[in-house]
Design a protein around this nucleic acid. Structure first.
Ligand SMILES: [Mn+2]
Ligand SMILES: [Mn+2]
Ligand SMILES: [Zn+2]
Ligand SMILES: [Zn+2]
Lengths: 136, 136
DNA sequence: ATCTTCTTTAGAATAATTATAAACAACGAA
DNA sequence: TTCGTTGTTTATAATTATTCTAAAGAAGAT
């Protein structure tokens, strides 16, 4: 059980005032055991389901982007009509079940070090992510 | 120099009749030495530039999707407001220069075998792709 | 309590993609 | 070739995720 104080801290660190709406967003995002992969729309519906309170879609978008910018959320690179985010901000990789449209974590140690034997002058590596598409 | 007959063959294989518009699309897509990474909008503008003839956006979308379905084009998984495609349909990976919004190929042998030490029951691996984000 | 600054929200705007349906072109049989 | 059929192009509308706007409301400081 994550405490409300932690949510307030996360919000403050993201330069956001701790409002009722934003705390509700945090409840759904961070009060969990396992990693959470979601689209904005998933999140929006879950907030209503879990907290019983309404939040505007704009607030969800704004808050998610602030958390993403601060590093409390990760954006997962897949082609979909909606953007996927992840509460697991550690270095890791993903399965994407194409049929179910669902993401599954792959721990870094389950892939092993990835050595990129090529470099681009003047550029440095920001991230290395593996996406494994799954089919039946 | 790729021949027009090859374009016609590609179109037929994709269950498309070889029309003037589609041949023009093929000219821009396949008449090249190096791999070509593009968005639909890139392609649309290049067709007008290179062939001097107009094509409707809908035709570009439809033709690209048919080629993609047939396997003549690859879709590159990155989060962008536009979808990126690739004429290199071999197994390979990418740098993505975030600032320039440009994709660069990484040959398979420049990454080495990627061993996924995890599996999902009832699912098999369809593809494994590495995306390396670059910054200055 | 009051003032200032930030926030929420409904609704409008934007932009990529997809759908529609009428005019048009490719094809194959006669 | 001509004709009939089937597939195609295109302008335009529809859809949909995301962002913007501006007015009303809440938080924080003094
Ligand atoms: Mn973002
Ligand atoms: Mn596609
Ligand atoms: Zn994850
Ligand atoms: Zn490529």
């Amino acid at each position: 059980m994550t405490s409300k104080q932690e949510f307030i801290e996360k919000l403050r660190n993201s330069s956001l005032r701790p409002t009722k709406q934003r705390i509700n967003i945090c409840e759904v995002l961070f009060n969990r055991d396992k990693t959470f992969h979601f689209t904005i729309n998933d999140l929006f519906n879950l907030i209503i389901d879990k907290t019983g309170e309404k939040v505007s879609l704009a607030t969800v978008y704004n808050t998610v982007h602030a958390f993403h910018k601060k590093g409390y959320l990760k954006e997962i690179p897949i082609n979909s009509n909606q953007t996927y985010f992840d509460t697991n901000v550690t270095d890791h990789h993903h399965f994407f079940d194409v049929k179910e449209e669902k993401l599954i974590d792959i721990k870094n140690e389950d892939v092993g070090p990835i050595e990129i034997q090529k470099s681009i002058p003047g550029k440095k590596i920001k991230s290395v992510e593996v996406l494994v598409k799954l089919e039946d």
